[in-house]
Design a binder for these strands. Sequence first.
DNA 1: GCTTGCCGAAACTGTCGGTTCCGTCAAGTG
DNA 2: CACTTGACGGAACCGACAGTTTCGGCAAGC
Lengths: 199, 199
Amino acid sequence: MPSDVAREPVAPRPHTGRRRNPAVREAVLKSAADLLAGPDGLTVSMDAIAQAAGVSKHTIYRWWPSKGAVLLEALVERAQQETSIPRTGTLATDVESFLVATFDAVERVAPLFRGLMAEALRDSKAAEGMREFVAARRQGLRALLTHGVEQGELPPETDLELMMDQIYGLMWYHLLITHTPLTEELAVHLARTLIRSAA
Amino acid sequence: MPSDVAREPVAPRPHTGRRRNPAVREAVLKSAADLLAGPDGLTVSMDAIAQAAGVSKHTIYRWWPSKGAVLLEALVERAQQETSIPRTGTLATDVESFLVATFDAVERVAPLFRGLMAEALRDSKAAEGMREFVAARRQGLRALLTHGVEQGELPPETDLELMMDQIYGLMWYHLLITHTPLTEELAVHLARTLIRSAA
DNA sequence: GCTTGCCGAAACTGTCGGTTCCGTCAAGTG
DNA sequence: CACTTGACGGAACCGACAGTTTCGGCAAGC
């Protein structure tokens, strides 16, 4: 092996040829999300996405390895609105506002969650991607709660994981089973019940 | 319309011809449940079920309208072990034993729940059947909790629906997302946390 | 023996996820 | 300018699957 391979492990060739059209990416993700939100949203095919995006299926598979990957990226794209954690007031109000913001954001992309779940139940790759997404989301809430414990607003023996299971469990339960909306009222009620019981 | 039609709205013809073989029904439901529990359980086909049961696909579709119906019936068959509610002790112990029994029963048919969920996300008929099943299960717990309110063991303003959402939400969350087992320890911990916080 | 109806075998339809081939066109290089 | 690289559309194609249909045989009752 020549030494310059080690010096340049990935060939930094400056890229020639036609460039990727960014409009294609946007159109595919947008069409996927829109179709999922429409009627028959739970049975959206790649052909339908390609047709709605005005793109050939061949192009989609050039940039995404599977249908699940498209749905996951569409979800990540729409859900990364940063639901920033204020952490200004007390733990009770912080958690409350976090849940309100989360439920509101999730509710707007609920069809994407359902579609990705349907895919995750058939494709282990999609399942893994979804689990990573969920875990990342969970990390934000965990930080909030551990901070609450450190501040003495929650007793140190509080089972934070159980609390998060109750929160996200209820969220998915509404999304997948009952199909009832994740209202602000529900978020407030849940947050108050959990914090009051633990403190 | 002759009056005897109203008298006998459905012809009560005594059934002639060859009778249904009950072994077929059992074999199909058993094969469906077993295949779901095996590797690749989330992508079980009707052909595979028919082959494993030693039965032709034609026969399956004679008795069940769809794949979702087969899975639903297999689940109902295996889950109707009556998880009887003792209601002997206090509410706290009753709920605790109810959750322990429920988690144990559900854990043993977890693959069926996942398979049915996958089907419910594509077939609205299957989704409706699953919702009915879930609602029936929920009714048992609701009776237990309302009885607790009547006995003064829970304050009357307790939001029982929210409490049940937290319980079944957590259950489905573990089943579908995290894939972590529903242990007896978890059931006890959840029951105590919920009852203690409400009382 | 005759009808009714259960059952298996197998071919078939339509749909879907994913792949492959071909032709075209855009962007950079000499 | 010609030439190479690589993005893109169109369309055919493959294998798997849910669900249907056809045929032929077999068991239960009349």
